[in-house]
């Protein structure tokens, strides 16, 4: 899924330039230079940034301003990096922490 906005009626050209490559769980992912890791992931439809410690539920960016810590991932081996406020760097390794056990039941 591609969720990138390329042209915007107010902001104009938002650049499609995927200038850098990061590695998410080992797989290459193009990203716009300078954007936060969480944005690069979200743009590609990768919404789950971690699996919760207790229940193993998928979690994703919730506040996008570094407060909720739901987007914390392992970046270049360092655990719990808040990806919504950490810009991408070429060659960066981003790993999804936690183990998926189950999603919430469908009501």
């Amino acid at each position: 899924m591609d969720l990138r906005v390329r042209r915007h009626p107010v902001l104009g050209d938002m650049g499609g330039g995927d200038e850098v490559t990061i590695f998410v769980d080992g797989r290459p992912l193009p990203a716009r230079a300078g954007e936060p890791i969480a944005a690069a992931l979200y743009a590609a439809g990768i919404r789950a940034t971690r699996y919760s410690r207790g229940k193993g539920e998928a979690r994703g960016p919730f506040c996008m301003v570094g407060r909720c810590t739901e987007c914390a991932m392992t970046v270049d081996g360092i655990e719990n990096v808040r990806t919504c406020v950490t810009p991408v760097r070429d060659g960066m390794r981003v790993d999804t922490p936690g183990v998926r056990r189950h999603g919430p039941a469908r009501v």
């Binding site: 919730f62 506040c63 407060r67 909720c68 810590t69 739901e70 914390a72 719990n80």
Partner: peptide
């Protein structure tokens, strides 16, 4: 008491 310290 978690990582976000109850902010949410």
């Amino acid at each position: 008491l978690g990582y976000c310290q109850g902010r949410f």
